[in-house]
Design a protein around this nucleic acid. Structure first.
Length: 228
DNA sequence: GCGACAG
DNA sequence: ATCTTGTCGC
């Protein structure tokens, strides 16, 4: 059986859930997550995941980026019928299955997963990156282009690398991070098996423009797929 | 009731 | 996310 077949079967269950079932699933998921240290070396490989849409079809892409060589070493894609609507807070039930399907042809090893969306910066601490990280059992974090939940603690500096905490009550749930001088920030939050400091460092190491390279390439690839 | 709201 | 032209700014 193929490497991701069992995970795909699990992913199918998500898009068949009702919103109330989805909410309950997330409240259970949050208890299953762990946020440990991740050792960042100079030659880690990062899996970038993104989804595009066209005519009620989702086009997902998975790309493996080598931090040492600064290049993509493998890509894989999927095309699926959309089965779950976009509802803020429930993106995982729309995108996890296409994303797992997109990994079908990934055969090289990767160390960490970067997802286009939130991790625990979510009302129930269970964003898309948490679902992916829990299913894959790999260090995973989210890097989103806009905010879903939480408030910024303080003023963000203009230089690359500056960040402020994204908080809810007294809890830090993510970071608003500047990936280049004078560009709008991205929203980084952990998904599973990694801590926020690691996630910020990895994001900065692979950012050569506003959007970190693994997501930039994954976005480009999924959009090309969407046109076909 | 009102405003906010990943992709 | 997607629909969409030109255009302001570095």
């Amino acid at each position: 059986m193929e490497k991701y077949e069992l995970l795909y079967q699990e992913a199918i269950k998500l898009e068949l859930m009702s919103v109330s079932e989805a909410k309950e699933f997330q409240n259970n998921l949050r208890k299953m997550l762990s946020f440990c240290d991740f050792n960042i070396s100079n030659d880690i490989k990062i899996l970038g995941l993104d989804v595009s849409y066209k005519n009620n079809l989702s086009k997902a892409s998975a790309v493996v980026f080598s931090l040492k060589d600064k290049e993509i070493i493998q890509t894989s894609v999927s095309r699926c019928a959309v089965r779950f609507p976009y509802i803020p807070g429930f993106l995982a039930f729309r995108e996890v299955k296409p994303l797992i399907a997109a990994m079908r042809d990934i055969t090289v090893d990767f160390d960490v997963v970067m997802v286009d969306g939130q991790g625990i910066a979510h009302p129930r601490r269970a964003g898309l990156a948490c679902h992916i990280g829990y299913i894959l059992k790999k260090p995973t974090f989210g890097c989103a282009k806009s905010r879903l939940f939480g408030k910024e603690l303080g003023e963000l500096g203009p230089k690359k690398g500056s960040f402020v905490a994204l908080v809810d009550k007294n809890e830090t749930i993510g970071a608003v991070l500047r990936t280049q001088d004078n560009v709008s920030p991205v929203y980084v939050s952990v998904g599973n098996m990694i801590n926020l400091t690691n996630a910020i460092e990895i994001t900065l190491k692979c950012s050569f423009s506003r959007i970190p390279e693994p997501l930039k390439i994954a976005d480009k690839l999924s959009k090309i797929m969407a046109e076909v």
